[in-house]
């Protein structure tokens, strides 16, 4: 167990190191990193001084080391645009992003669990019920095919524009949370429905279910006591991973709804080429996603005793 955890922890560190290298390199991919800081008529002397002040005269590896050291102390540079600490700006927006991702995951599980279970069970029912299964699985595939930003645009046009029921943008009230949540949850709902359907279906076909039935247990008891607890384990893993994906993927939807989260901040930073903010946003969201994935791994091993820790299959 300890071995396994150490291995996962080491891997999480590797991921973070990769992200830090990538975000360090970003500033060089974009051309001269200080071009945005220097006035057009600057003297060569001043340019050299600025280079020295930002350590740009050092070899790359030293620069990376200095960058990493600062980042670990919470210094990710100053936003070009707001002239304040980039990390603080990103952290200030983080609660909104977590709120949106959490609400979306909650909504998709509320919808996906009944639909997925229903679809799976209808496969074992008389054949007229198979139509229901087809309907639910095709519907979930359609959800996976919707561009989330476009769904957001349509919802705004209908519910904020034509009907005037809900606000189109901003955050702070429950009404403002509704449309972005529906938009973000569409994709994960489709994903979860398909996964739950598959998992419940596969579990129903297993030996212990046959045994439970042949013991004469009531069908409802078999379903709720024997099938569901087993079918849910892989679903929980995906839900955890999906929460991480929602944090990273909310960039697009946040922009549609002007939802003041990390994603929207990052897109605005992209427009004004504010690299310290882009860097801080990528680093913080990645850190969160890595921590969530690590947590899911640990949770998985606790929930499912069949998983042999530390032994690769």
């Amino acid at each position: 167990m300890l071995n396994y955890l150490l291995q996962r922890f080491w891997q999480a560190c590797l991921v973070l190191i990769t992200v830090s290298i990538l975000s360090f390199v970003l500033i060089y991919l974009s051309g001269d990193p200080i071009a945005a800081l220097i006035p057009l008529n600057a003297r060569q002397e001043d340019i050299d001084n600025i280079r020295r002040a930002y350590n740009l005269d050092q070899p790359l590896i030293i620069q990376y080391w200095l960058f990493l050291g600062k980042a670990l102390q919470g210094d990710m540079g100053e936003s070009f645009r707001y002239r304040t600490d980039a990390l603080r700006l990103v952290l200030g927006r983080l609660p909104n992003t977590i709120l949106l991702a959490g609400a979306s995951l909650l909504l998709s599980s509320i919808i996906a669990f009944p639909l997925g279970i229903w679809a799976a069970r209808s496969k074992f029912s008389p054949s007229r019920w198979h139509l229901l299964d087809n309907f639910i699985s095709t519907g979930s595939l359609l959800l996976l095919s919707l561009p989330s930003f476009w769904l957001g645009v349509l919802l705004i046009l209908v519910f904020a524009g034509a009907l005037r029921w809900l606000p189109a943008s901003g955050a702070g009230t429950f009404q403002q949370l509704i449309l972005p949540t529906i938009t973000v949850s569409a994709f994960s709902t489709g994903l979860l429905v398909r996964l739950i359907r598959r998992s419940v279906y596969d579990t129903f076909k297993q030996q212990f279910v046959v045994v439970a039935r042949s013991k004469g247990l009531a069908e409802q008891w078999v379903a709720w006591r024997h099938v569901l607890p087993n079918a849910i384990i892989p679903v929980i893993t995906v839900m955890g991973l999906q929460f991480g994906a929602l944090l990273g993927g909310s960039v697009v939807v946040e922009t549609v709804f002007a939802w003041p989260g990390v994603g929207w901040l990052m897109i605005q930073a992209v427009e004004s080429r504010d690299l310290p903010i882009i860097r801080a946003a990528v680093l913080i969201l990645s850190l969160f996603i890595v921590l969530i994935n690590l947590g899911v791994d640990v949770l998985y091993t606790i929930l499912d005793p069949r998983v042999k820790l530390g032994k690769s299959s």
């Binding site: 974009s30 994906a245 960039v251 990528v282 969201l285």
Partner: peptide
């Protein structure tokens, strides 16, 4: 494993913003 844990969309946006 590393690539799977990286936030894809986010990195794509950041890289495209840079290049």
């Amino acid at each position: 494993d590393i690539q799977l844990s990286l936030p894809g969309v986010l990195l794509a946006i950041a890289i495209l913003a840079a290049i």
